[in-house]
Amino acid sequence: MPFANFKTPEGALSKAQKAEIVHRTTAMFAEYFGDGVRPHTMVLIEEVEDGGYGRADEVYEIPEAYRAKP
Rank of each mutant, 00 (worst) to 15 (best):
P2Q: 08
R24F: 01
A16N: 09
V48M: 13
Q17G: 03
K7M: 08
T26R: 07
T25E: 04
S14N: 09
F6H: 05
M28H: 08
G36R: 12
E10Y: 06
I62P: 01
D35F: 07
Y66K: 12
V37W: 05
A16Q: 12
M1K: 07
E10G: 11
G36N: 13
K69W: 07
T26M: 09
G11S: 03
G36L: 09
K18N: 07
E31P: 04
L13M: 10
A68W: 03
R24N: 05
E58Y: 09
A68E: 07
E46Q: 12
A12M: 14
V22I: 15
P63D: 07
V37Y: 00
E31V: 11
G11R: 07
R24M: 07
P9C: 00
L13N: 13
A56N: 13
T26H: 01
H23Y: 05
A27Q: 11
N5V: 15
Y53L: 05
D57K: 12
G36P: 01
V43W: 01
T25K: 03
M42F: 12
A4D: 03
K18D: 04
P63Q: 02
G52E: 02
I45F: 00
T25R: 01
D35K: 14
G54Q: 14
Q17T: 12
G52A: 07
L44N: 14
F33H: 10
T26I: 09
P70R: 14
D57W: 02
P2L: 01
P39L: 11
M42D: 06
P39A: 11
A19S: 07
P63K: 13
I45P: 01
E20F: 00
G11C: 10
P63W: 05
M42Y: 10
V43Q: 06
